[in-house]
């Protein structure tokens, strides 16, 4: 081959393009791509789920593409016929959006050895829940005279300027608003009571964070001392030595089904089903339940232990009693209006 300028340039451009768009080189057959959530979820899945999957599939290749739910949807929506993701992980709201838009296909549960062992709330044809996310009261124990036990404690006058919440962009913020509405006679279809409660909370509100991650930071900085919080986000702070505790309120902790889905038109459907099955297995869920992951299991074969048994539920029957599940189909119908109302009305 002549080493001409033209050749060199062509090679350089090709190499550059391949580097910039790795998808170019293996558009046909590619390895399985799993979009998990960012941060601690990615770490947990890399440490536990990926090795279990590779063991079960004779070392099949897998890539993690950590993205927020809505970003996963955007990425799949951009090329639905040739999706860059095979398996998606979703909060309840986005999961319904993905199903409604026809981006996912049913999970072949009949051929799954573990699906039948899931508690009823975790089953679902369009995608089962390998774990739950749980929202309860987060508080700084060093700043409390009496420890909180109920959502109503957040409205106590002693917490003037000390309460932190998120806006309704997050599942946490919206789910909490619905729960507050329900505790005051409202429902998923009517959250007026929740907005009224927020109005009454204004003098206590110290901060409205943009997302759950930013909210967690505020406890670390001593900016706020009490508010609704995600069990797993709090465990990360606790592990870093921040004085913060989580308690399931007596009204019940809010549980979000986090569901895992096979993307429609995925070229790796069989491997995708195997990955999901691994995520449902008692071995993986049992390991993820232990520290430092502390991820709430949905498989009834997993015996609850440690922090989760202590703080949340001692077994799956206890879980059914203590967890509150919400109807996100109803919530999604009106969420846009609530966000608009929150934008306009909540000023502190």
């Amino acid at each position: 081959m002549d080493l001409t300028r033209r050749h060199l340039m062509t090679s350089a451009f090709t190499l550059g393009a391949m580097h910039a768009f790795p998808g170019l080189s293996h558009a046909q057959a590619r390895r399985l791509v799993f979009s998990t959530f960012t941060g601690s979820w990615e770490e947990a899945h890399k440490d536990v789920l990926v090795p279990a999957f590779r063991k079960a599939t004779d070392n099949a290749e897998i890539t993690l593409d950590p993205l927020l739910s809505m970003d996963q949807i955007a990425k799949v929506k951009a090329s639905p016929a040739n999706p860059p993701i095979d398996v998606m992980l979703h909060d309840p709201g986005p999961a319904l959006v993905a199903i409604d838009q026809g981006l996912v296909e049913p999970f072949p549960f009949a051929s799954s050895p573990h699906y039948k062992d899931l508690i009823a709330d975790a089953q679902g044809e369009m995608g089962p829940a390998p774990f739950f996310q749980v929202v309860g009261i987060t508080y700084n124990p060093e700043k409390m005279k009496t420890l909180p036990t109920s959502w109503a404690d957040i409205w106590k006058p002693e917490f003037k300027g000390r309460v932190g919440i998120t806006n309704l962009n997050s599942t946490l913020g919206t789910g909490w608003l619905v729960e507050i509405a329900r505790s005051r006679g409202g429902s998923e279809a009517n959250v007026d009571a929740g907005f009224k409660a927020l109005e009454e909370l204004k003098s206590n509100l110290g901060a409205v964070a943009a997302n759950p991650g930013a909210l967690a930071t505020l406890y670390q900085q001593g900016q706020v001392d009490i508010g609704p919080g995600n069990f797993n986000a709090i465990q990360i702070l606790k592990a870093r030595g921040v004085p913060v505790e989580f308690v399931a309120p007596k009204e019940g902790a809010i549980a979000f089904r986090t569901t895992i889905h096979i993307v429609k038109n995925s070229p790796n459907k069989e491997l995708a089903a195997k990955l999901i099955d691994a995520a449902l297995s008692p071995e993986v869920q049992g390991k993820l339940m232990e520290a430092p992951y502390l991820i709430v299991p949905t498989n009834t074969k997993v015996k609850m232990s440690g922090e989760i048994a202590k703080v949340l539920a001692k077994d799956h029957d206890d879980m059914k009693k203590k967890f509150v599940f919400q109807d996100w189909k109803k919530i999604n119908e009106q969420r846009a209006g609530w966000i608009e109302k929150f934008n306009r009305d909540i000023k502190i």
Binding site: N167, N211, A214
Partner: peptide, 14 residues
């Protein structure tokens, strides 16, 4: 977002 918070709404967040 991080210094303004979730309740001061500006165009990028909107």
């Amino acid at each position: 977002t991080l210094v303004g918070g979730g309740q001061l709404l500006f165009m990028p967040m909107y």
